[in-house]
Every structure is written in structure tokens, then in C-alpha cells.
Write a protein that binds this DNA or RNA. Structure first.
Length: 494
RNA sequence: GCCGGCGUAGCUCAGUUGGCUAGAGCGUCUGACUGUGGAUCAGAAGGUCGAUGGUUCGAGCCCAUCCGUCGGUACCA
């Protein structure tokens, strides 16, 4: 084909091809998470990947076009549609369309979501979320369960208490802080947002950075300048005091918060909610080693109305290049009492939480907590003598019937290439029958991993090596299945 | 979006102050070896030096723009 006519294979920025090892590992992880969710009584739901932009709440009527940050286009009726950017907005739409659902409605959902964002390490434009939500109750018990289910999930994945932390805060408490700041001088809604943004950046820019962001602004090491909230010194001190709130128990933290924002009715409401969550957690003995109240948690700025929570991994994680990097939050969520109301006009409170599947998976991989086997079959039946194909097929059938994942070599190359293929495609065992074996009623079985290991000192005399084949044994035809099972169990497979 | 680093073979990189047909290792493929992947040896394929324009007798090297990538920062439902 003419070179200029060829199509260059390209892939969209921020999108990935995910190959078998990662996909199999992800499926296993999702299965474990699902088990936990179902144990709490959540049931599955699937909604479309495409939604009308107004249903996602991202249509800008003034501009007559969608908000940035989402993949949107016009359909054949000139309506704006978009790929979902989370699973919460579609859930709200679903609940609004199905008012007869028994409440509280508890569902889980897993699938890809899409955002137009700058891709980074572990950050993509298409990624998996695994959500669990309770719709139709204002009880803090539902929020407390969100925290507990996150603990149970992370622990089911092999992450122990102490290696993770669930941190809880409340948007009403944050409003209370803004109220307290406003007591020392006027605060516009815009400034209120800037204050929350500054608080959110505490772990990245430190206390001094936050103070700069609250005051004149901050210039970072790249020379970029971020405009500040231009608060007075007295106002900045209010936020500083808030950020310094600490306590050895959740109750102690609530007490301190209470003191700081006692003049704000909204703030007090928030603290009271946190106390309820604490009580529910304590009843089930989820201590501060698992769930803490952390006044610095903000979680975005949009639809959350009450408790917000996030889960972080607290141990150091070393990536492939040997660089230790902190592993941001892997789960997050909160209460969104206004989302369904947007459709129906009725207040339907809701709360839920979301797992960043890909990030968590990356963490489990570096931890070695997830099996990264890339093949579904452990055995390759080779075709040494193509005229014996019918026999090979029968053999394959027997192995599969015995529950052993087995692939028949369907290529055309010679036996040498077949061994290489077996090894490269992750098989554990290769099975060979040729004239010799058939005459003796035997089967040759090769342990490919052992062979690989032994070959490290193969020596100069390859002829002798080939004749001996220390990783290979010939067994009676009837012994085939037990022999293979023995080899597989050596590697904890099967 | 803004600021900065980096783009040479599939991968990791060399490439002299701008100067011949752009190199190495690893990997891949082929053969020695049609009943054995991993050893050894021999050989081969693979690059419009990220793209486009410019400076120059001459550009992988200098300049501009764009694209990609990495890092910081902003925004983030």
C-alpha cells in the first residue's frame, strides 16, 4: 500500500488501551468491591454513558453551549449530549424519572466516566469509578455507612487500618468558617469560594501557602501567580485557627470546631451532623485509626451540601522509576441533598461515595496486593505433529473439562516457536505428544517457569541440555491431569 | 489555561564548535538447529533525527511556530 495513503494509528490524549494483565486485575478488584457493597444490601444499576447535557447539569443557557470539562456534541436533533463525567448526576436523573422507587434507594454502579482534563500520571480522561449511594434519607446513618463501607472495602482489598485513612468533614462546617471570617469584615460569595479553595490546598502548599492565598496571593516555583482572597490579618487568623483544630478523639475535634463557629447556625448544624456520624461509627467500633474528622477536607466546590469524606493511602508508594510519590485520595464522596430537586422540585436527600478504580488498582499493584497474571489459560497443548491434531483436540477437551484453562496451539509454526509462544503468552505448562510419546502411551509435560529458571545456567553444551530437558517429564497419559495440577499448584494457580 | 524541561530505531541512549551514505546496546526477525523458548555464533529488518517554515554553500545540531510528552501551577462536577 502506498505509504501516503496509510492511516497513522493514533490514540486520543488521556485515553488508554488496557491490556489483559491490567484488565484481569481490575476485574478481580471490582469483584471484591462488589461483594462488600452487596453485603451492605446495595443493588446494581447501569445508566447510559451518554446523557443530555442539561441532565448532567452542565448546560450554560446564557452561552447556549455546554460547560467546559466535558466531552459534548450535538446529536441528530441538534440537542447537546455529553459523555457522563461522574455516576452521581445520572443517578439523580434516574431517581427523578422513577419516583416510585422504594426509599431509601441503595444502588452501586461501576463504569467509565469522562472528563476533559489535563492528563497526568494516574490521571486520565477516561477512568473507572465504582460508586455506592443511598438516595432518599437525610439520616447521618447513611453517611456513616459510607465511611464504614469504604473501610471494609479497602480492608477487603488487603489495605490494613493505619495504611489508609478515611477523613470526614462537613460543608456546613466550612460555611461556618466563612461566616466566622465574615464576622471580622465583609466576605463576598466569590471570596468565600477562594477561602475554601485555599483550605483545600493545605497539604500541597502548607500553612504559609494557605495564608498567602488568603491574603495577597501566592507565586509558586514555576513563576505562576495565584490571586489571593485579600483578607485582613484578623480574618486570616480565623482560618488559621480553624486549620489548627486537632483532637485525639472525634468528639474532641467536634468540641473545638463548635467553639470556633458557635455563632454560625449552619456551622453548628454541621458539627451536630459530624457528632451523629461519630456516634454511628463508634457504635460499630470504627475508631480513629480508621475514620477521623478532618477540618481540611473540602472536596471540590459544587453539589455537596453536608458531610464530605475522602479516603487516602497513608503509606509511601514507590513507582516503577523508584520515585516515592504520595498517592492522593482514592475514594471520595459526600452528601448532595439538592441534586434530585433540580429535576422534580422535591427535596430528595442523598449521599454516596466513589472509588477511583484505576488509582486504587495502581496502588494495589505497587503493593503487590493484586495478582497480575496476564493469561487465562495456564496450559498450552502444542502441535508437534500436525497429523495428530485430532488427538490434541481431544486432550484439550479433557483438560478443559477438568477445569484447567487450556489453549490449543492453532498457529502454523514449528515446535520451537510453539514453546516460545507458550512462554511469551504466560502459560505455565506446555504439553507435547509426538510419535515417541504416543507409542509409549505417554505425554511430555514441561514446566515452563522452571525451565526458564534452570536455563540461567544452561552452559555451553546446548545439545546435552536439549536431551536432558530437566524441566520436562514424560508421564503416562492417565497421569496427565494430576501432573499438571501439581505443577500449577507449585505456582499457586488453579 | 499558564510557566518550564524533554522529543534521534520497538526500548535505553551516543552523535564532536553546523560538515560525507546518522551509530551502539537491548529487543525483534532469519539461519546454524525441520522433537523443544531461554545458551552461543552469523546475518537481516527497522529512522523523511516529533511536524512545518526559516537562517546557511550545508541543519539531528541555530531560530520561529505547532504537536506530543514530562514536571509545576490553575480549574475540577
Amino acid at each position: 500500500m502506498n505509504k501516503t495513503l496509510r492511516t497513522e494509528p493514533r490514540r486520543l490524549k488521556g485515553f488508554r488501551d488496557i491490556t489483559s494483565a491490567d484488565l484481569l486485575a481490575r476485574d478481580r478488584m471490582i469483584a471484591r468491591i462488589r461483594e462488600v457493597y452487596e453485603r451492605y444490601g446495595f443493588t446494581p444499576l447501569e445508566t447510559p454513558m451518554l446523557e443530555y447535557v442539561d441532565a448532567l447539569g452542565k448546560f450554560l443557557p446564557e452561552a447556549d453551549q455546554p460547560d467546559g470539562g466535558i466531552f459534548a456534541f450535538r446529536d441528530e436533533d441538534e440537542e447537546w449530549v455529553a459523555l457522563r463525567y461522574d455516576l452521581t448526576a445520572p443517578l439523580s436523573r434516574f431517581v427523578a424519572m422513577n419516583p416510585e422507587l422504594p426509599k431509601p434507594f441503595r444502588r452501586y454502579q461501576v463504569g467509565p466516566v469522562f472528563r476533559v482534563e489535563k492528563p497526568g500520571p494516574g490521571r486520565f480522561r477516561e477512568f473507572y469509578q465504582f460508586d455506592v449511594d443511598t438516595v432518599g434519607t437525610a439520616s447521618m446513618l447513611a453517611d456513616a455507612e459510607c465511611c464504614m463501607i469504604m473501610c471494609d472495602t479497602l480492608e477487603a482489598l488487603g489495605i490494613l487500618p493505619g495504611d489508609y485513612a478515611i477523613r470526614v468533614n462537613n460543608r456546613k462546617v466550612l460555611s461556618g468558617v466563612v461566616d466566622a471570617v465574615a464576622a471580622h469584615g465583609p466576605v463576598t460569595p466569590e471570596t468565600g469560594l477562594t477561602i475554601l479553595r485555599a483550605i483545600d490546598k493545605l497539604d500541597r502548599v502548607g500553612v504559609d501557602g494557605v495564608r498567602q492565598l488568603l491574603g495577597p496571593g501566592r507565586r509558586d516555583e514555576s513563576g505562576d501567580f495565584t490571586r489571593g482572597a485579600a483578607l485582613s490579618a484578623a480574618q486570616i487568623d480565623v482560618v488559621s485557627d480553624y486549620l489548627n483544630v486537632k483532637g485525639t478523639t472525634r468528639v474532641a475535634v467536634c468540641d473545638e470546631l463548635q467553639r470556633l463557629i458557635e455563632k454560625s447556625p449552619t456551622g453548628c448544624e454541621g458539627v451536630a451532623e459530624l457528632r451523629e456520624i461519630d456516634e454511628a461509627l463508634s457504635n460499630m467500633e470504627y475508631g480513629v485509626d480508621r475514620v477521623t474528622i478532618d477540618p481540611t477536607v473540602v472536596r471540590g466546590l459544587a453539589y455537596y451540601t453536608g458531610p464530605v469524606f475522602e479516603g487516602v493511602l497513608t503509606f509511601p508508594i514507590v513507582d516503577e522509576e523508584g520515585v516515592s510519590r504520595p498517592f492522593g485520595s482514592v475514594v471520595g464522596g459526600g452528601r448532595y441533598d439538592g441534586l434530585v430537586e433540580r429535576f422534580t422540585g422535591q427535596k430528595i436527600p442523598a449521599t454516596g461515595t466513589s472509588i477511583g478504580v484505576d488509582r486504587l488498582l495502581a496502588a494495589l499493584k505497587t503493593l503487590g496486593r493484586i495478582d497480575t497474571q496476564s493469561t487465562t489459560a495456564s496450559v498450552l497443548v502444542t502441535r508437534l505433529d500436525k497429523t495428530l491434531t485430532a488427538e490434541y483436540q481431544r486432550l484439550v477437551g479433557e483438560l478443559r473439562a477438568a477445569g484447567i484453562g487450556t489453549e490449543l496451539y492453532v498457529g502454523t509454526q514449528g515446535i520451537g516457536k510453539q514453546f516460545k509462544y507458550a512462554s511469551d503468552s504466560g502459560k505455565i505448562v506446555a504439553v507435547v505428544i509426538g510419535e515417541d510419546e504416543r507409542a509409549r502411551g505417554e505425554v511430555a509435560v514441561k514446566d515452563l517457569r522452571l525451565g526458564e529458571e534452570l536455563s540461567k545456567n544452561i552452559g555451553a553444551d546446548r545439545r546435552q541440555w536439549l536431551e536432558q530437558q530437566p524441566a520436562q517429564l514424560s508421564v503416562a497419559r492417565g497421569e496427565l491431569i494430576p501432573t499438571i495440577k501439581r505443577i500449577l499448584s507449585r505456582y499457586a494457580i488453579g
